[in-house]
Design a protein around this nucleic acid. Structure first.
Lengths: 156, 156
DNA sequence: GTACCTGCAAAAGATTTGCATCTTT
DNA sequence: AAAGATGCAAATCTTTTGCAGGTAC
């Protein structure tokens, strides 16, 4: 369980009114640390908080992204995933499943920043750099051969 | 116009039957070099080829991805975009528009590969590394202030 | 009290699917 | 001829929207 005051202070810093729904959504994204989809967030919240509306969760997530409290994670699926912001970090993507893990490496970060300071991109002002490292988690089971299993929706 | 034999040879190398629809889809993704959505591909094709079915284009794009002829581009929108494979490259993402440009830099590539050879990630076998460079293209107009314009669908 | 939030249900948008028909090989 | 592709339309799934009523400040 996250510290309640941490959550409310994040909300008020972002000049958002503190409502039970917002607390629940922010808590869910922070607690579900595996880059949840909106649906995962909804399921998580509904366990303790059955009467929250789906539309509210979507609206709230979008609001949080606008305020910079959370980030959208880029994926090559058509379903959005979210990430509670902490420190700058990169992501490891499984090439065969939907797993996404954080990858924090300040040394790498520094190396890349240094590179771009020395090699400016013409006509482009860099705001952020993210590394997508795609591959296989060696602790997970291998690529499923059944095509339907891979492409089935609602498999998160 | 792309060389027709280049396209048919790619298809037959991938052991796919050569059909007018597949030629049109592959040609479109190659010609539309700005990482088109499925819809852009469909519009492009329909100009010369009015009776191709939407579902066919989606199926064909998915087939090409499976065969490695094209790639899905990771974005933080819920709409898929595609990329005709050429050499390994990274992407520049506009933080305020949907523009995505290729960023090819062999030196950077080499530097990152070298880094990961020296710093293995535990329990992870790297297959590919992509850099997402997010920022502003200095030649384009700045972030729109009208919220609706930013979030409107079908704005590609 | 006012500005902002939420719930609800309907709508919209993107993608997938099933199946009969047609094309490649 | 067999295997595989396509067209079509309906279905599915995710996300957005409009608005009446509610809540935080």
């Amino acid at each position: 369980m996250k510290n309640a005051s941490e959550i409310t202070s994040k909300l008020s810093c972002a000049r958002l009114k503190i409502t039970p729904q917002r607390i629940a959504v922010l808590e869910a994204v922070m607690e579900l640390n595996n880059h949840p989809t909106a649906e995962k967030v909804i399921d998580f919240i509904k366990a303790n908080h059955p009467n929250i509306a789906t539309g509210t969760v979507y609206k709230t997530l979008e609001t949080f992204v606008e305020k910079g409290l959370i980030k959208k994670v880029k994926t090559d699926r058509d379903i959005m995933r979210y990430d509670a912001m902490t420190v700058p970090h990169h992501h490891l993507y499984s090439s065969s499943t939907d797993r996404i893990e954080d990858f924090i490496d300040p040394e790498l970060q520094k190396m890349i920043e240094k590179y771009f300071n020395a090699h400016k991109i013409p006509n482009f002002k860099i705001e952020d750099i993210k590394l997508q490292v795609i591959g296989e988690f060696l602790t997970e089971k291998k690529k499923v051969t059944n095509k339907n299993q891979q492409h089935e929706r609602k498999k998160y």
